[in-house]
């Protein structure tokens, strides 16, 4: 019954959010676009990294692929097809990367994913310089903030629904087992590689779509603009703040952090980077499991907290 109620409430919230921009000015819509974008990014990131505890910094690699696909194809293909192409490219890259690297664990995976973003950026640059002979690309699509917001909102709903479904499925159980102990999971008969690969590809495809949907807002893209590593870091810290293992965790991390960053950059533009850094450190030190887990921990002090060492690895 609770699930039904939750679904009805979620649908109502979604409807409310869908009509919200009709009452807001351009800046309000801009805020919603940015916020929804990060909710999707953080949720998609947590879809893979939450249960498996593989910390990925490749977010911007896929985000950038999406944006670039739109830039390259927006004048030759109808928009829905462009989005499909972006999905296909993101998925293909994720499968190739996943197949070759999901054997890496811990810090090696983190470093690899960080390098992946840079690798793709350099590849795009190399291609543009040597093959097409131009670097900046233009996206002239007739979208305003509100259109982009609606697309992102739909994607957010789909992402959360998918996360919810995966959590309840055998795949989700398998992934949690992998996160707890990969060797044990393998011995329990879980096809570890397949499970990880599927989730990585799914998460990467959603991230690719976010980049593709948001790109028309910038009109002009070049590798330095779309492969901005800050996006990876922000996504990570938002998901960690909310709690990467919870369904609503990433969203709950993304919304307050996004609004905080917005408030900071409007009021303290000169100290933004310093405050951001302090925040990163604070979250990792004080909320390694995220806000949701912390609140639950406070509410149920009698229940023992889970063993420390496992929790640490999730936030490393």
């Amino acid at each position: 019954m609770n699930t039904t109620v939750a679904f009805i409430l979620a649908a109502a919230a979604l409807a409310g959010l869908a009509i919200a921009p009709l009452f807001l000015n351009a800046y309000g819509i801009g805020l919603l676009v940015g916020m929804t974008g990060y909710v999707v990014l953080a949720s998609a990131w947590a879809m893979f990294s939450g249960p498996t505890r593989y910390v990925s910094l490749a977010t911007v690699a896929f985000f950038g692929i999406g944006a670039y696909t739109v830039a390259v194809l927006s004048e030759t293909l109808p928009y829905p097809l462009v989005l499909l192409c972006a999905c296909a490219i993101g998925l293909t890259v994720a499968l190739i990367v996943g197949l070759s690297t999901l054997r890496l664990a811990g810090i090696y995976f983190v470093i690899f994913t960080f390098g992946l973003a840079e690798l793709i950026r350099q590849l795009v640059t190399w291609y543009e310089v040597n093959v097409t002979g131009t670097l900046g690309r233009y996206i002239f699509l007739p979208f305003e903030g509100i259109h982009i917001y609606w697309q992102l909102l739909a994607l957010a709903a789909a992402t959360l629904l998918l996360s919810w479904w995966i959590n309840r499925s055998r795949l989700g159980l398998a992934l949690r087992a992998v996160g707890d102990d990969e060797v044990v999971a393998a011995h329990a008969g879980i096809n570890v590689s397949r499970a990880k690969l599927m989730l990585f590809a799914l998460s990467a495809t959603i991230i690719t779509l976010v980049g593709a949907i948001q790109a028309p807002r910038w009109v002009y893209v070049e590798p330095a603009i779309v492969f901005n590593p800050t996006i990876s870091f922000l996504t990570l810290i938002m998901a960690l703040l909310g709690g990467a293992t919870r369904l609503w965790g990433p969203a709950l991390g993304a919304i307050p952090l996004f609004l905080l960053f917005e408030w900071l950059s409007a009021n303290f533009p000169n100290y933004f980077s310093i405050i951001l850094g302090v925040f990163f450190i604070g979250i990792v030190f004080f909320l390694p499991q995220g806000v949701l887990a912390k609140i639950e921990g406070l509410r149920r002090p009698a229940r023992k907290a889970p063993p420390e060492n496992k929790e640490r690895s999730g936030a490393a």
Partner: peptide, 22 residues
């Protein structure tokens, strides 16, 4: 009224929206 776009297009766009409508 001075804002920092933090060298990000998305921030630049939103900052201009803020300037224009807020």
């Amino acid at each position: 009224i001075e804002y920092d776009d933090r060298s990000s297009s998305e921030e630049a766009v939103r900052a201009v929206e803020r300037l224009a409508t807020q």
